[in-house]
Simulated scan of single mutants.
Amino acid sequence: MSTDKLRFGMFLPPYHARNENPSLALHRDLWLVEHIDRLGYDEVWVGEHHSAAFETIGAPEMFIATAAERTRHIRLGTGVVSLGYHQPLMLAERINYLDHITRGRVMFGVGPGALPSDAAMMGIAVEDMRPRMEAALDVLIPLLRGEVVNAEAGWFTLRDARLQMMPWTRPSVEMAITAMGSVNSAIAAGKYGLGILQFQSVGCFPMTTLPAMWNVVQQTAAEHGQTVDRSKWRLVLQMHLAESRQQALEDCRFGFEPWVDYFRHISALPLPPEGTRGDALPQAFVEAGTAVIGTPEDAITAIERHLADTGGFGCVMLLAHNWANSRATAESYELFARYVIPHFQGLNINREASIEWVIERRRQEQAQHGFDRASKS
């Protein structure tokens, strides 16, 4: 694995229950990004969705432009733009603009589109979504490097197309593709030499093939003359932390059931048995091993297990799920920043060495003083 330190961030779809003020929810999303920027997180990725009423950001580029003005250090990525919905030149212009106004803090996450209902509203067949993504990638990558592109793909035409400004980040912004479990995303990541936003689990369904997925990325990259780096492999985890496991489970009573209902009815994912409701739901996820609802120590144990199982990755992304209310959610991110991040980034190594040195020095001085008193007597 790369010698780079393990990074930490947030994956923000977002998820908002249908009974709350949607405008207030968007402002709360912005506040949460500001909050984790102050806490020292490295990055956040923001989703694009257009239907189903739960994931309410339709323009991640606009969200990022707003968040960029309110933050200082955190990197901001689209997580992800559904490429088949956008004319590639127009999209490349927007991403390049963000690259310049953030002075290199933007990242470009891409995918085919997660909700068939989004595609249906635009008259796009579900089976065309992935081919459209690859056709768009074929031109977006050179466009974002400042190259001239000519292409015909049926749903778009480019003739001597180029960006008016060279990219701020050279050779271009960092790019990544989302992966929910299908090998197709791993193949695309390897083919184009992209990073990968990998979900450790979806709902209560564990992804048990993470090492195999990375092997596919590497093998495909080699076949296409690309290079890939584990530091660009990001693992999205489901966590909520509190000072005790019981408190964490209690916190999740706020929004866990609406979140589960969304996935049951919209995404048709294999979640806990239909009869599992209410307070039993968070515990079912914990028992399935696909969510950490507990303490910082539980989070450390889970991340260490994933590092051992996968051979290493570059970034842990916490899924912004709104299982708990705003206060408990903010505290969860703070607990993670206070106790989990330092463990993996070695932030206290010199502090531990310093106190050990002081204790040893004091022991030696006490021993010497005792020897001196004995010799005088």
Rank of each mutant, 00 (worst) to 15 (best):
residue 264 R to D: 14
residue 11 F to H: 12
residue 57 I to C: 07
residue 368 Q to S: 05
residue 264 R to S: 11
residue 50 H to Q: 05
residue 163 L to H: 03
residue 3 T to P: 04
residue 152 E to T: 11
residue 209 T to A: 08
residue 320 A to D: 10
residue 228 V to D: 08
residue 129 M to L: 04
residue 142 P to A: 13
residue 142 P to M: 06
residue 175 M to H: 04
residue 24 L to Q: 05
residue 180 M to H: 04
residue 83 L to N: 06
residue 89 L to W: 04
residue 106 V to C: 07
residue 271 L to N: 06
residue 173 V to C: 02
residue 221 A to V: 13
residue 169 T to L: 02
residue 319 L to Q: 03
residue 87 Q to F: 08
residue 89 L to F: 13
residue 172 S to G: 15
residue 369 H to Q: 15
residue 171 P to G: 05
residue 218 Q to I: 09
residue 195 G to L: 04
residue 253 R to P: 06
residue 151 A to L: 12
residue 25 A to K: 09
residue 133 M to V: 02
residue 282 P to G: 05
residue 279 D to G: 00
residue 88 P to Y: 10
residue 124 I to E: 05
residue 70 R to M: 10
residue 308 A to V: 13
residue 243 E to I: 10
residue 180 M to G: 07
residue 32 L to P: 05
residue 226 Q to C: 02
residue 256 F to G: 00
residue 13 P to E: 08
residue 132 R to Q: 14
residue 165 M to V: 13
residue 41 Y to I: 01
residue 362 R to L: 12
residue 199 F to A: 05
residue 4 D to L: 11
residue 250 E to K: 15
residue 123 G to I: 07
residue 166 M to H: 14
residue 186 A to H: 11
residue 242 A to H: 15
residue 292 V to M: 03
residue 26 L to T: 12
residue 245 R to P: 02
residue 123 G to N: 14
residue 65 A to S: 14
residue 77 G to W: 02
residue 189 A to N: 14
